[in-house]
Computed example of a mutant assay.
Amino acid sequence: MLPFKFLDAYGKEDKDRFFGRERETAQLYNAVFAANLTLLYGGSGTGKTSLVNCGLANKFYPSDWLPIFIRREKNLNFSLQAAIARHLDGQQPSDFREWPLADQIQRLYLDHYRPVYLIFDQFEELFILGNREEQQSFYQSIAHLLRARLQAKVILIIREEWIAHLNEFEKVIPSLFDNRLRIERMNDLNIARVIRGMAGQAEDPEIRIEDPKTTITRIIDNLRDKHQRVDLTNLQVYMDRLYRTDLERQGGSEVRQVTFDPELVERVGRIDNVLGTFLEEQLMRLENQLDQQGVPSVKGLPLEILFTLVTEDGTKQPMGTAEIRESLPRNREIQPEQLQYCLNEFQRLRLLRALETSE
Rank of each mutant, 00 (worst) to 15 (best):
residue 189 L to K: 14
residue 159 R to I: 09
residue 164 A to K: 00
residue 203 E to F: 04
residue 280 E to A: 04
residue 162 W to M: 01
residue 279 L to Y: 12
residue 278 F to M: 13
residue 207 I to Q: 08
residue 186 M to R: 07
residue 198 M to K: 11
residue 254 E to L: 14
residue 262 P to L: 00
residue 149 R to T: 00
residue 259 T to W: 12
residue 228 Q to H: 12
residue 241 R to V: 12
residue 155 I to V: 09
residue 215 T to K: 14
residue 253 S to L: 12
residue 186 M to E: 08
residue 242 L to D: 05
residue 281 E to T: 06
residue 255 V to L: 04
residue 282 Q to K: 08
residue 291 D to F: 13
residue 244 R to G: 08
residue 200 G to Q: 14
residue 274 V to Q: 01
residue 192 A to M: 05
residue 157 I to H: 00
residue 167 N to G: 11
residue 176 L to F: 03
residue 281 E to K: 00
residue 175 S to D: 13
residue 229 R to K: 12
residue 222 N to H: 03
residue 150 L to H: 02
residue 252 G to F: 08
residue 275 L to Q: 02
residue 198 M to P: 07
residue 261 D to L: 14
residue 143 A to Q: 14
residue 258 V to T: 02
residue 226 K to Q: 12
residue 216 I to A: 01
residue 143 A to Y: 15
residue 143 A to W: 15
residue 202 A to N: 07
residue 245 T to Y: 00
residue 149 R to S: 00
residue 289 Q to W: 15
residue 159 R to A: 02
residue 257 Q to E: 07
residue 170 E to C: 11
residue 251 G to Q: 01
residue 197 G to E: 03
residue 179 N to T: 03
residue 240 D to A: 10
residue 209 I to D: 10
residue 277 T to F: 06
residue 206 E to S: 12
residue 277 T to P: 06
residue 220 I to Y: 02
residue 192 A to H: 04
residue 286 L to G: 11
residue 255 V to Q: 03
residue 259 T to S: 10
residue 240 D to P: 04
residue 171 K to A: 10
residue 244 R to E: 15
residue 240 D to T: 09
residue 170 E to Q: 11
residue 217 T to A: 14
residue 169 F to N: 04
residue 169 F to P: 03
residue 239 M to A: 07
residue 216 I to D: 00
residue 176 L to W: 05
residue 172 V to K: 03
residue 227 H to A: 14
residue 144 H to T: 14
residue 228 Q to P: 10
residue 233 T to D: 15
residue 181 L to K: 06
residue 273 N to I: 02
residue 184 E to W: 06
residue 219 I to T: 05
residue 200 G to F: 14
residue 232 L to D: 05
residue 225 D to I: 14
residue 185 R to C: 07
residue 250 Q to D: 13
residue 171 K to H: 08
residue 166 L to M: 02
